[in-house]
Amino acid sequence: MQILGLYNYWIFIVLMMCGFYVVISRGNLVKKLVGLNIFQTSVFILYISMGKIIGGTAPILTETATVYSNPVPHVLILTAIVVGIATTALGLALVVRINEAYGTIEEDEIHAQSEDEAL
């Protein structure tokens, strides 16, 4: 029961592993970034769910509510989301430049071209 009750953490783990796997296994540079995004998003979920308190409301002072969710992790993760977006944007920009320079965004083809250069 406890295991199921922590389903949000299970989602975090599954997403994290999925994202990580995509980053490692894909040779396509854009797909790698997609994987990286999933990986980062999973952490967002971790932070968001750790701030949630069952029965708590949004942290706004009202007379009816006595239990509030913890706002700090949510605020923290806003920062992390911004960072994630910046990373994705930069990553995609690099992919565009790589495509211009190599004419491909497949890792093994780029690798082959680089090998030629090294010789």
């Binding site: 540079l29 930069l90 990553g91 780029i110």
Partner: peptide, 26 residues
Amino acid sequence: RRALTAAYQYLIMGTIGATFILIGIG
């Protein structure tokens, strides 16, 4: 032009590292 792929590689590795740190802090 290999600087681009190097930067990309670093971006992937660096982001994974940073995200791990983020999880740890969490």
